[in-house]
């Protein structure tokens, strides 16, 4: 039997672990286990497993065709998993579709056009689908917050691309979901709007919403996500806290122009490629220039010029995919 003092102990263990920056959660917002999604013979998602902790932004990162949208489609019941399990808040999607759907907000990748209705009407109907018939307060909050208030009586076809995207986000939030799924939320959005959407997503996270977003922009993942999983050809290649992943995977390029002869160049230690009398190094991003120079044993007077190029995330990404 577990009595209350055991729970107290458990809590204190949890608290201590938290203090050590090790979070232990008993309920995951979203648990995907061994998910497989096939279209005919083609496998779009291949034994994917991830678990989202409450209140985090998790980024599913991958190039076009990686299987991001297919994964999201199984969470929102647009596609049935070929095998595996998807649980939201402990409810299996296939077993309790209504409950799961009522807890989810979903922003599709493609813009929806809604022929007949104005922005405000669309939000009212959408709110009604979630059982909330009188939801003016939340609807007006979202219209205001997303800058759609001046456009609330316009039909969707008269909105700009950015406004349409904001409408999709407002729709996904009318019922105050606990879990928000954003499929490429800033694809085709200009920089200013993108930044303000990022800001809003962070705000949502801070108010307790758990967020799964997909993106093929590394920059977006870096700016927003607490953790990322890298998806390629349906398989999860790597998963971890964003910062660590970036550190582990990015390189700096250091170019050292020397006045050394071919003979002397041969004596330089380390891994590099040669272009004339210029040495090209690739070093982990946390390694310092001093350490590199010390390692090579290059005499200072032999160095004519040094240029450093920070490795791009793009490159890191390609690294992982290349290795996969």
């Amino acid at each position: 039997m577990i009595n209350s003092s055991h729970w107290v102990q458990l809590y204190s263990v949890q608290a201590r672990l938290k203090f050590l920056n090790l979070h232990v959660y008993t309920v995951f917002m979203l648990v995907i286990q061994d998910l497989v999604k096939k279209y005919g013979d083609f496998t779009a998602v291949d034994h994917l497993s991830i678990a989202l902790q409450p209140g985090e932004i998790f980024g599913l990162l991958g190039p076009n065709g990686a299987g991001k949208t297919s994964t999201i489609a199984t969470i929102v019941s647009l596609e049935e998993p070929t095998s595996g399990s998807v649980k939201v808040f402990g409810f299996e999607v296939a077993d309790s579709p209504k409950k799961v759907k009522s807890l989810l907000g979903y922003v599709p990748q493609e813009i929806v056009n809604h022929g007949y209705f104005s922005v405000e009407e669309i939000l009212k109907f959408h709110s009604g689908y979630f059982g909330r018939l009188n939801n003016k307060k939340q609807i007006h909050f979202l219209l205001e917050r997303l800058g759609l208030m001046p456009h609330k009586d316009k039909k969707v076809k008269h909105l700009s691309g950015g406004m349409k995207r904001r409408l999709l986000i407002a729709k996904a939030l009318v019922h105050k979901p606990k879990l928000l799924l954003l499929d490429e939320p800033t694809a085709g959005v200009d920089i200013e709007l993108r930044n303000s959407l990022w800001e809003f997503v962070r705000e949502l996270r801070d108010s307790g919403v758990t967020i799964l977003l997909t993106t093929h922009y590394l920059e977006e993942a870096e700016a927003l996500c607490d953790r990322v999983g890298i998806l390629h050809q349906g398989r999860l290649q790597k998963v971890g806290p964003t910062k660590e992943l970036i550190q582990d995977l990015t390189f700096r390029r250091v170019q050292i122009k020397t006045n050394l002869s071919a003979e002397d160049l041969k004596k330089v230690k380390g891994e590099y490629s040669l272009m004339g009398s210029t040495l090209n190094f690739k070093i982990p991003s946390e390694e310092s220039l001093g350490a590199l120079l010390a390692k090579t044993g290059l005499p200072l007077e032999a160095i004519l010029d040094i240029s450093i190029q920070e490795g791009s995330l793009e490159e890191a990404f390609l690294n992982i995919l290349g290795r996969a």
Binding site: S77, L78, I111, V112, N113, H114, G115, H126, F130, G131
Partner: peptide
């Protein structure tokens, strides 16, 4: 038909409508 064209009916599958 028009809902399929605009993407509207996709919503019906995602919201808690049985």
């Amino acid at each position: 038909v028009s809902g399929k064209f605009s993407g509207d009916v996709e919503d019906w599958k995602v919201v808690p409508l049985s």
